[in-house]
């Protein structure tokens, strides 16, 4: 049984030597020595035939067992060394925790991101994005929307007038106070059926504070067709709210007044902070007003050349700035217009 003893010694010396290998390039030499064509183990296996039958079986089994064992050990060692190499900053490796070569990164403004997200939702419902002028005639901003010269609604939209005069010396040019000003322009230009959303900047004569700025963003929507109903308005806005605010956010429709719709609607969502139990953000009501809407007033349709007996229409309008503020917990609207990189980098 000399052979058996030899084999066992071979195994232990091979494993000992393998344990001492510290670099992957030395593994090959080890393999050649112990598992190669000219290795002791190979020659033992080759010489098996010359052994007596009893011994042959024993030596054969052990040799094969040792061979597979060594092969496994080699593989394992190779893996270990590879890992060690990756993790170390040895002479061949690199310190992978060092900072990489930095490419400047930029971001889109959170308002741009929000407008895009909203537009994408409505576009997927068959709406088209339309833009109108920011400097607008009194007519489109007010008169066409039933807001006559002495309408109390004008008080709530403190207007910035522009100094340009018409031929007659009238000043009837203003910075639009709402994107609803685009409604009539759209209806004058497009034949029904119409489904549009109209994002953009709007302006008010307002001093800046944490919740007010003289320029902000709105988006209006308008649908005109033969069978548009308030149920459709609800469906469209619920779908928007579901996708923008999330599946489980409760939505409320209540009666409200806007001169250019009848019936009028205000949509609110369950408060994002308190979830409806009442907090400072929602004024203890549990609800946050998100938008105003309604069925477009027949006079508004008529003025735009659309017969209100043939067509019905819904319209909605919402402030955009509040949406990223609510979503990210921004507590001062002025940050949106402050161009501060410490702010912009966060979105």
């Amino acid at each position: 049984m000399e052979m058996i003893k030899q084999l066992k010694e071979l195994k232990s010396s091979a494993l000992k030597e393998l344990g001492a290998v510290s670099q992957a390039k030395d593994l090959e030499a080890w393999r050649v020595r112990y598992l190669g064509k000219k290795s002791q183990l190979t020659s033992i296996l080759r010489g098996l035939a010359k052994l007596p039958i009893e011994e042959r079986r024993q030596v054969g089994a052990l040799s094969n067992q040792i061979k597979t064992g060594l092969e496994e050990s080699l593989e394992q060692k190779a893996r270990l060394l590879k890992q060690a190499k990756l993790a170390s900053a040895g002479e061949e490796g690199i310190d992978i925790t060092l900072p990489g070569r930095h490419f400047p990164t930029g971001r889109l403004h959170p308002l741009t991101q929000t407008v895009t997200e909203i537009c994408d939702i409505f576009v997927s419902m068959g709406f088209q994005v339309v833009e109108g002028p920011e400097v607008e005639w009194d007519y489109y901003n007010f008169e066409a929307l039933n807001i006559t010269r002495h309408h109390p609604a004008r008080d709530s939209m403190a207007t910035l007038w522009v100094d340009a005069e018409t031929e007659k010396g009238e000043r009837n040019m203003l910075l639009r106070t709402h994107t609803t000003a685009v409604d009539t322009r759209v209806m004058e230009q497009m034949p029904p059926p119409i489904r549009v959303v109209m994002p953009g900047k709007v302006y008010r004569y307002e001093a800046s504070d944490v919740t007010h700025v003289p320029m902000f963003h709105q988006i209006d929507g308008l649908a005109v067709d033969k069978n548009i109903t308030m149920a459709d308005l609800k469906g469209t806005l619920y779908e928007f709210a579901r996708r923008f605010f999330g599946e489980d956010r409760k939505v409320r429709f209540r009666c409200d007044y806007f001169p250019f719709v009848e019936p009028g609607v205000e949509m609110a969502i369950e408060c994002l902070v308190c979830g409806g139990t009442g907090c400072r953000l929602c004024g203890n009501s549990g609800w946050i007003e998100v938008l105003g809407a309604g069925m477009t007033h027949p006079r508004v349709l008529e003025r735009s050349g659309i017969d209100p007996r043939e067509y019905t229409s819904f319209a909605f309008g919402m402030g955009i700035d509040r949406l990223p503020m609510l979503r990210y917990g921004i507590d001062d609207i002025r940050l949106l217009y402050g161009s501060d990189l410490r702010f912009l980098r966060q979105f």
């Binding site: 490419f103 400047p104 990164t105 930029g106 971001r107 889109l108 403004h109 308002l111 741009t112 920011e134 910035l160 910075l175 900047k201 302006y203 700025v213 003289p214 320029m215 949106l336 217009y337 161009s339 990189l341 912009l344 980098r345």
Partner: peptide, 12 residues
Amino acid sequence: GYGFYEVITYSL
């Protein structure tokens, strides 16, 4: 993508 941050400033 070129590393620019978008800002929105007042039109006035």
